[in-house]
Structures are given as C-alpha cells and as structure tokens.
C-alpha cells in the first residue's frame, strides 16, 4: 500500500470505529450504576414496620424464598408510575415483594398504600435512609432480586413496567430460581 491509500483509509477506519462505539453507547445509560452488592448478602437491619411501628423487622423476617426488595417513597414521582405494575405482579405471581419505604414520613407512606393498594408482603420503614445507604440506593425506585439464601442477585434502578418485568426481571428470576415462573391461576 502506498502512502496515499493509507492516508485515505485511516480516517474512514477511525470513523467506523467511532460509529460502532457510539452505537453501543446509545444503549448505555450512564445514570445506571452497577450495584456493588451483587452476590452479597442483604445487609443487616433493625427497622420498624410501616403499618405497625411497634413491630421490629430484621433480616430474619425476610422471606426464605426468591423475593424482591422494592425501595420506594411517596415523595418519589416515578414510584407512583411504578405502583400499578407492582400491584399487577403481586396479584399475578407468587413472588413476595418486600417494600422499603425510603426516607418517607410514616403518614405519607401509609396514605400511599391506602389510596393505591398494597402490593407488598411486608413494608420496612426506613425513615433515616440507613438501610437505603447500606443497599447503595441512589435513586428510588430501585428493585433488588434476592435469592432464597438471602443473597442479592440483581438490581434494577428505575421504574419497572411490563417491558422491564418481562425482558429483564422475569428471565433473571427464573435463572436464579432455576425453574420457570408461571403466573398464579386466577379464577
């Protein structure tokens, strides 16, 4: 190859590499951070139940099967959008959803589930946000997939809708569980 062809080809190659790079970067949301808690146990906590401040929840109260942890707050706009989906999945599937009412006022949290329904198996009131910080939460809503051993396997930041549920969460939950997850028959 003579020098002229090289000078002609180099910019084209650089251009193509950049196009490919940017193409992949399109799908990559820089606001979505990898969780540092993947394959680590759910952190210890000792926090009151939202519906009954007398009752104290600890890690031992978490379900001993595959479950979800959903971090939400009445102050969080996207949580309002996500809520009907959680209601639907709680009805349709037998996967317990543990709610963490994150940095919310008890009265507001209670009003939220009273008005919109309660999809949660249990709700932990994390008023100070300590459990949130231990979970590395940086933007509600966040949803964690936890296996029956209490190990965090996946984290999703943002609103769960049908697309996220069917394309991401369900396949990962099935993989973690090692079996298909079928909707519960409703009469």
């Amino acid at each position: 190859m003579n020098k002229k062809t090289v000078t002609a080809i180099v910019p084209i190659v650089v251009f193509i590499v950049l196009v490919v790079l940017f193409w992949f970067a399109l799908d990559n949301d820089p606001k979505k951070l990898n969780s540092n808690l993947i394959d680590k146990p759910v952190p210890e906590f000792q926090l009151p139940a939202l519906q009954n401040p007398e009752q104290v929840f600890t890690k031992a109260d978490l379900p001993d099967e595959l479950f979800l942890i959903n971090v939400w707050g009445s102050w969080c706009g996207p949580c309002h959008i996500e809520h009907p989906y959680l209601m639907k999945y709680a009805q349709k599937f037998s996967i317990p959803i543990v709610g963490v009412n994150y940095k919310d006022k008890t009265i507001d949290g209670l009003k939220f589930i009273k008005d919109k329904g309660n999809p949660y198996h249990m709700i932990i009131a994390d008023q100070q946000g300590n459990l949130g910080i231990d979970l590395g939460v940086y933007g509600a809503p966040e949803t964690f997939i936890v296996d029956k051993m209490g190990t965090i396997r996946f984290r999703y930041v943002g609103v769960i809708d049908d697309r996220v549920w069917n394309k991401k969460l369900l396949p990962i939950m099935e993989q973690v569980k090692g079996s298909d997850i079928q909707p519960v028959a409703t009469q």
Binding site: L33, N34, N36, L37, D134, G136
Partner: peptide, 8 residues
C-alpha cells in the same frame, strides 16, 4: 462508601 456504591 465503596462497599455500598462501588468504585464509582
């Protein structure tokens, strides 16, 4: 902090 939020 790193344990919770990663190297980020």
């Amino acid at each position: 902090m790193q344990e919770r939020y990663g190297d980020f």
